[in-house]
Design a protein around this nucleic acid. Structure first.
Length: 612
DNA sequence: AGCACGCCGACT
DNA sequence: GTCGGCGTGCTC
C-alpha cells in the first residue's frame, strides 16, 4: 500500500511513500482509507522525521525511483476530516498555494508538539438550566443579517444564544474580528452570570485564537469535534475548525479587515465559513452595527434591524464651530470627542531645494533624500493630529487634551481611554482608529462628537469614501445610544458642501439604496469583483514577459501597475475584473505564472476583493 | 522553503 | 593552503 503526503512547504506537489506491513496491520480493523487526513512522520530529502499529512491512499503507483517508507502515524484518528481536506484543496487552487501550506492554516500541524488524542478529562460540572430571553432567539429564526444599535443589545444577543445552545446541547461558533473584541465580550459574558452557572459556562465555552499555544488550540479542536463543548469564541482561524457537529455560526462585523489573512494564502475568513457551511446543515448569522453596502446588498433579502433605543442623537453639518462647542461643553462639565483625519505631526514634507512635495507616509524612515533632486533638506507642512492638538490649547490653556493615533503603542492608547472613561480628559482627539476600541470607550459623559474637515475623507476619490464616513457616523450613534445620551450631538464639519452630502444624514436603508444605485451605474463592487495578483521577483525580465503574455491572452485583465523595485526585488500588480469565465481564466493565469516562477526567489500573492 | 553540493575569491 | 559566500539542483 502507498500514500501521498503533503508538507508545509511551498512546493505544489504530493510525495509518494509506502505504508509498511506493521502500520497496515495496526489500522486494519478500521478501513485503511481512514489514514487519510492523519499526520505521518517520514524522512523527506535530507531531513529526518518530518511531519506531513496523508492526502490519499492507493494500491499502485507509478514512480520509478526509490520510495521511502512511512515511519510513524502521528494520529490515532485523522486530524483533518474529508470535508476539510477537500475544502483545503479548493483554497490551494484558488490562491495558488500548496495544499500543505493551506492545511497548516487550518491547523498548525507541523509543530512538533506531541498531541495525545485522549487528553479529554470529562469534567464533572453540575448541569444547570441557563436563563434565556426568547426575544433574542427570534432574531435568528428567519433573518440572516442582524443590525444592532447598541453595544449592550448585541452582547446580550450573543449571551442568550450561547445559553440556549448550552441548554440544548447544540454547537455554536462565534467569530470576532480581533482578539481584543473577543476578550471584551468574554469579560462581559463572565460578568453577567451568577455563581452556579459560571462553572458550567466556563466548561462549555472555549476561546480559540491564533495566539494560543498549539497544544491549547488542539485541545479545543478535539473537544469541539468530540461534542464535549458547546461554544467556541474564535478569531479568523476559527473558520477552519471541525464543523461536523456545529449547528450555528455567528460572525461579528463580518466585513472587518480583521478577517483577512495578511499572509499567504490571503483568505477572508467569512468566505471560508460561507462555503464550508454549505456542506453541513448550519445556520449562519451576521451581526453588525453597520454593514458595508456590499454586505447589505448580498444579504438584502434577509436583514433585520434591531431597534433598542430611540435615536436621539442630533446630527448637523457645521463649519468651524469646534472652539465654541468645546467651550460650551467645558462649562457643562461634559466631554468632547474630536475625530481628526490625519495621524502624526505633519502630512507632507516639502524639499527645500526643488519644492517637491512628498506625503509623510511615503517617506523612508531614516535618511530622507528628495526623489526629484536628491537634496536631504526638507520642511514639514500640513496639519497632523499632534499639531492640531497643540493649536487646540489656544482655546484654553487649562484644558486636558489627549490624542490617539496609530503612532502610539497600544498600552499608551489603553491608558488614554482609561483616563477618558474616568473623566480625566476634557477633549479626546482621535483618528478613526478610535473605533477599534469601540467596546472600551465610555461615552457616558460625552456631549458632542465633532468630525473635523470631513472634506478630506469625502473627496478622497475612493468609491468607498461616503460609505466610510457614513459608517463612522453610525458607530458614533451606536456609542451615544449605548450610554443612553439623550442630548448627544454629532457634528460634521464640511467646508465645501455638495448636494449628495445629504445622504450622510439619511436613514440606513435610504443611504444604501442611493449608494448602491451609483455603484451599479459605475460598476463597482458589489456589482463586479476584483482580483489582485501581486508578483515579486528578482528578475525584471521575467515579470515583463508575464505582463506581455497576460495583456495579450487574458481578456479580463484591466489594469497592470508599473513594475516597481524594492530592495533589489521587482514587484508588479495585476488587477482582474471577474467575468463569467472566471475559473477558466484563473487556471490560465496560474499556469502562466507558475510555469515561469521559481519558488526560491519568486512569490505570488492572490487577493480577492482587495482594499483599494 | 530548506538543505547539500560545488565552484570561486579573500584570508589566517 | 581553507573558510565561506551564494548559484544550482533536488525533495517520493
Amino acid at each position: 500500500m502507498f500514500c501521498n503526503i503533503v508538507f508545509p512547504i511551498p512546493l505544489q506537489q504530493k510525495f509518494v511513500y509506502f505504508l509498511p506491513e506493521q502500520i497496515i496491520k495496526q489500522f486494519s480493523n478500521n478501513e485503511i482509507r481512514s489514514l487519510v487526513g492523519s499526520r505521518a512522520i517520514v524522512d523527506f530529502g535530507p531531513k529526518k522525521d518530518v511531519i506531513g499529512v496523508i492526502v490519499d491512499v492507493k494500491e499502485k503507483v507509478e514512480f520509478d525511483k526509490n520510495i521511502k517508507p512511512v515511519k510513524t502515524i502521528f494520529d490515532t484518528k485523522p486530524l483533518f476530516s474529508f470535508e476539510q481536506l477537500e475544502f483545503a484543496k479548493k483554497i490551494a487552487n484558488k490562491y495558488f498555494v500548496s495544499l500543505g501550506m493551506v492545511l497548516n492554516q487550518f491547523f498548525p500541524y507541523e509543530e512538533k508538539v506531541k498531541f495525545t488524542q485522549s487528553i479529554i478529562v470529562s469534567q464533572n460540572v453540575k448541569r444547570v438550566k441557563l436563563d434565556v430571553n426568547v426575544k433574542y432567539l427570534e432574531f435568528i429564526k428567519d433573518k440572516k443579517l442582524l443590525v444592532f444599535d447598541t453595544i449592550n443589545e448585541k452582547f446580550l444577543f450573543y449571551t442568550n444564544i450561547i445559553f440556549d445552545i448550552i441548554n440544548k446541547e447544540k454547537q455554536l461558533i462565534i467569530l470576532f474580528p480581533s482578539n481584543v473584541y473577543l476578550i471584551d465580550f468574554w469579560k462581559f459574558l463572565l460578568k453577567n452570570i451568577n455563581g452556579e452557572s459560571v462553572l458550567l459556562v466556563k466548561s462549555k465555552v472555549m476561546l480559540y485564537t491564533g495566539e494560543l499555544p498549539v497544544k491549547e488550540r488542539f485541545r479545543v479542536w478535539q473537544l469541539l469535534r468530540n461534542k464535549q463543548i458547546n461554544v467556541v469564541l474564535a478569531t479568523k482561524v476559527g473558520a477552519f475548525l471541525p464543523f461536523e457537529n456545529v449547528t450555528n455560526v455567528v460572525i461579528d462585523e463580518a466585513d472587518s479587515l480583521g478577517y483577512k489573512n495578511q499572509e499567504v494564502p490571503m483568505y477572508h475568513a467569512c468566505d471560508i465559513v460561507q462555503e464550508r457551511v454549505k456542506t453541513y446543515n448550519i445556520v449562519l448569522n451576521y451581526s453588525f452595527f453597520i454593514p458595508s453596502a456590499e454586505f447589505f446588498y448580498k444579504n438584502r433579502k434577509s436583514v433585520k434591524f434591531i431597534k433598542s433605543c430611540d435615536n436621539l442623537a442630533k446630527i448637523k453639518v457645521v463649519k468651524g464651530e469646534l472652539k465654541k462647542i468645546i467651550l460650551e461643553n467645558i462649562y457643562k462639565f461634559k466631554q468632547t470627542v474630536v475625530i481628526f483625519p490625519y495621524k502624526g505631526y505633519a502630512r507632507f514634507c516639502v524639499c527645500c531645494i526643488c519644492k517637491h512635495k512628498i506625503p509623510i507616509k511615503k517617506m523612508v524612515s531614516e535618511g530622507f533624500l528628495c526623489p526629484k533632486c536628491g537634496s536631504k533638506y526638507y520642511e514639514l507642512r500640513g496639519t497632523g493630529i499632534q499639531k492640531f492638538v497643540q493649536k487646540l490649547y489656544d482655546i484654553n490653556k487649562n484644558l486636558t487634551i489627549e490624542y490617539i493615533d496609530s503612532t502610539l503603542n497600544t498600552k499608551k492608547i489603553e491608558k488614554i481611554i482609561n483616563d477618558f472613561n474616568n473623566e480625566k480628559i476634557d477633549v479626546l482627539v482621535a483618528t478613526p482608529l478610535l473605533f477599534n476600541y469601540i467596546y472600551r470607550i465610555s461615552f457616558a459623559n460625552v456631549k458632542s462628537v465633532y468630525f473635523v474637515c470631513l472634506d478630506s475623507l469625502l473627496y478622497s476619490g475612493s468609491y468607498l469614501c461616503y460609505e466610510n464616513v457614513y459608517r463612522f457616523i453610525t458607530l458614533c450613534k451606536v456609542l451615544l445610544n449605548s450610554y443612553n445620551i439623550a442630548d448627544g450631538e454629532i457634528c460634521l464639519e464640511i467646508f465645501h458642501q455638495k448636494e449628495y452630502n445629504d445622504v450622510l444624514l439619511s436613514e440606513i436603508k435610504v443611504f444604501f439604496k442611493k449608494e448602491l444605485k451609483i455603484r451599479k451605474e459605475l460598476c463597482f463592487p458589489p456589482f463586479c469583483e476584483v482580483i489582485k495578483i501581486t508578483l515579486v521577483s528578482k528578475n525584471k525580465n521575467k515579470l515583463e514577459d508575464i505582463i506581455d503574455i497576460a495583456k495579450e491572452k487574458i481578456r479580463s485583465v484591466y489594469l497592470i501597475e508599473d513594475i516597481i523595485s524594492e530592495d533589489k526585488m521587482f514587484k508588479v500588480e495585476i488587477f482582474i475584473k471577474m467575468d463569467k469565465n472566471f475559473e477558466y481564466q484563473m487556471v490560465q493565469i496560474k499556469e502562466l505564472i507558475l510555469s515561469k516562477f521559481d519558488v526560491r526567489f519568486d512569490k505570488v500573492y492572490v487577493e480577492y476583493n482587495p482594499v483599494l
